[in-house]
Simulated scan of single mutants.
Amino acid sequence: MTTTFDMDDLRSLLRSCAGEPESVDLDSDIATTTFEELGYDSIAIIELAACVKQNFGVAVSDTAAVNTNTSQDFVDHVRGLLTHGNTIHRPRRADHDMTPASAEPAGKSDSIAPA
Protein backbone atom coordinates (compact mmCIF):
# COMPACT_ATOMS: atom_id res chain seq x y z
CA MET A 1 0.00 0.00 0.00
CA THR A 2 1.28 3.44 -0.88
CA THR A 3 2.25 5.66 2.04
CA THR A 4 2.60 8.97 0.21
CA PHE A 5 0.08 11.24 -1.45
CA ASP A 6 0.87 14.39 -3.39
CA MET A 7 -0.68 16.84 -5.82
CA ASP A 8 0.14 14.58 -8.78
CA ASP A 9 -1.76 11.75 -7.08
CA LEU A 10 -4.71 14.08 -6.60
CA ARG A 11 -4.62 15.14 -10.26
CA SER A 12 -4.52 11.53 -11.39
CA LEU A 13 -7.45 10.55 -9.18
CA LEU A 14 -9.49 13.57 -10.23
CA ARG A 15 -9.02 12.60 -13.87
CA SER A 16 -9.80 8.92 -13.37
CA CYS A 17 -12.60 9.21 -10.80
CA ALA A 18 -14.31 12.52 -11.44
CA GLY A 19 -13.20 13.54 -14.94
CA GLU A 20 -11.47 16.71 -16.01
CA PRO A 21 -13.61 19.76 -16.71
CA GLU A 22 -12.85 21.29 -20.11
CA SER A 23 -12.34 24.77 -18.69
CA VAL A 24 -9.62 23.68 -16.22
CA ASP A 25 -6.00 22.71 -16.67
CA LEU A 26 -5.28 20.32 -13.81
CA ASP A 27 -1.58 20.48 -14.67
CA SER A 28 -1.48 24.13 -13.64
CA ASP A 29 -0.86 25.23 -10.06
CA ILE A 30 -4.12 24.16 -8.40
CA ALA A 31 -2.89 23.97 -4.80
CA THR A 32 -4.79 27.06 -3.63
CA THR A 33 -7.78 26.45 -5.88
CA THR A 34 -11.05 25.15 -4.44
CA PHE A 35 -12.73 22.12 -5.95
CA GLU A 36 -15.68 24.34 -6.82
CA GLU A 37 -13.39 26.68 -8.76
CA LEU A 38 -12.01 23.62 -10.55
CA GLY A 39 -15.54 22.67 -11.55
CA TYR A 40 -16.13 19.75 -9.16
CA ASP A 41 -19.31 19.45 -7.10
CA SER A 42 -19.75 17.59 -3.81
CA ILE A 43 -20.69 14.33 -5.55
CA ALA A 44 -17.41 14.40 -7.48
CA ILE A 45 -15.49 15.03 -4.25
CA ILE A 46 -17.22 12.12 -2.52
CA GLU A 47 -16.27 9.94 -5.50
CA LEU A 48 -12.71 11.22 -5.16
CA ALA A 49 -12.71 10.16 -1.49
CA ALA A 50 -13.89 6.68 -2.51
CA CYS A 51 -11.04 6.47 -5.02
CA VAL A 52 -8.54 7.48 -2.33
CA LYS A 53 -9.86 4.64 -0.17
CA GLN A 54 -9.58 2.15 -3.03
CA ASN A 55 -6.14 3.24 -4.23
CA PHE A 56 -4.40 4.35 -1.04
CA GLY A 57 -6.19 2.39 1.68
CA VAL A 58 -7.32 5.34 3.79
CA ALA A 59 -10.88 6.40 4.41
CA VAL A 60 -11.54 10.09 3.88
CA SER A 61 -14.95 10.77 5.38
CA ASP A 62 -17.50 12.40 3.12
CA THR A 63 -17.69 15.32 5.54
CA ALA A 64 -13.92 15.84 5.56
CA ALA A 65 -13.77 15.53 1.78
CA VAL A 66 -16.43 18.14 1.02
CA ASN A 67 -15.19 20.48 3.75
CA THR A 68 -11.63 20.78 2.48
CA ASN A 69 -11.14 24.31 1.23
CA THR A 70 -8.45 23.82 -1.39
CA SER A 71 -6.79 21.05 -3.34
CA GLN A 72 -3.76 21.34 -1.06
CA ASP A 73 -6.00 20.97 2.00
CA PHE A 74 -7.27 17.68 0.56
CA VAL A 75 -3.73 16.47 -0.18
CA ASP A 76 -2.63 17.43 3.34
CA HIS A 77 -5.60 15.62 4.88
CA VAL A 78 -4.88 12.38 3.00
CA ARG A 79 -1.17 12.69 3.75
CA GLY A 80 -2.00 13.08 7.45
CA LEU A 81 -4.15 9.95 7.40
CA LEU A 82 -1.35 8.00 5.75
CA THR A 83 1.28 9.37 8.13
CA HIS A 84 -0.71 8.44 11.21
CA GLY A 85 -1.34 4.91 9.98
CA ASN A 86 -5.05 5.26 9.44
CA THR A 87 -5.01 2.69 6.68
CA ILE A 88 -7.81 0.25 6.22
CA HIS A 89 -6.83 -3.33 6.95
CA ARG A 90 -8.56 -5.55 4.45
CA PRO A 91 -8.63 -9.13 5.70
CA ARG A 92 -7.48 -11.66 3.17
CA ARG A 93 -9.99 -14.29 2.15
CA ALA A 94 -7.93 -16.98 3.93
CA ASP A 95 -8.40 -15.08 7.21
CA HIS A 96 -12.08 -16.04 7.27
CA ASP A 97 -13.63 -19.44 7.79
CA MET A 98 -15.21 -19.96 4.41
CA THR A 99 -16.47 -23.47 5.25
CA PRO A 100 -20.03 -23.88 4.01
CA ALA A 101 -22.58 -24.93 6.62
CA SER A 102 -23.14 -28.22 4.78
CA ALA A 103 -19.52 -29.19 5.49
CA GLU A 104 -20.04 -29.34 9.25
CA PRO A 105 -19.37 -32.71 10.89
CA ALA A 106 -22.41 -34.77 11.88
CA GLY A 107 -23.81 -33.74 15.23
CA LYS A 108 -22.42 -30.19 15.01
CA SER A 109 -25.42 -28.61 13.33
CA ASP A 110 -27.24 -25.65 14.88
CA SER A 111 -30.60 -27.03 13.80
CA ILE A 112 -33.09 -28.15 16.41
CA ALA A 113 -33.78 -31.87 16.52
CA PRO A 114 -37.46 -32.91 16.46
CA ALA A 115 -38.87 -33.79 19.86
Rank of each mutant, 00 (worst) to 15 (best):
T68L: 06
S71T: 15
T68M: 10
A64K: 02
A65P: 00
T70A: 13
Q54S: 05
A115I: 14
A65G: 02
D110T: 06
H84R: 14
I88R: 11
Q72C: 12
T87D: 08
A65H: 03
I88C: 10
V60W: 00
I88Y: 10
G85L: 09
P100A: 06
N67W: 01
A49G: 04
V75Q: 11
A106T: 08
F56G: 00
R79Q: 15
H84A: 13
R93H: 11
E104I: 10
D76P: 07
G107H: 04
S71G: 13
A94K: 06
A115M: 10
A101T: 09
R90Q: 12
T87E: 11
H84F: 10
I46E: 03
D97S: 09
L48T: 04
T83E: 15
F74T: 05
R92T: 12
D97P: 03
A50D: 14
V78Y: 03
D97M: 08
D97E: 05
S111D: 06
I46C: 07
V52L: 07
G80Y: 07
R92W: 07
I45W: 00
P91C: 04
T68Q: 08
P100S: 09
N86S: 14
C51E: 10
Q54H: 09
L81N: 07
A50S: 15
A59I: 02
I46N: 03
I45S: 00
H89G: 09
S109C: 02
D76L: 15
V75P: 04
R93E: 08
C51P: 04
A101M: 08
D76H: 12
A64T: 02
T70D: 11
H84Q: 12
F74G: 09
S109R: 06
H89P: 05
F74I: 13
T87G: 09
A65K: 01
A101W: 04
V52N: 02
I46K: 01
T87P: 09
A106R: 08
A44E: 01
E104F: 11
A49V: 04
D110E: 08
L82N: 03
L48M: 12
V58K: 03
D110N: 08
N69V: 13
F56R: 02
G80S: 15
V78E: 09
M98H: 13
N86K: 14
G107E: 09
P91E: 07
A101I: 09
A59N: 05
S71L: 07
S61F: 02
R79L: 13
D110W: 08
K53W: 07
I112S: 03
H89K: 14
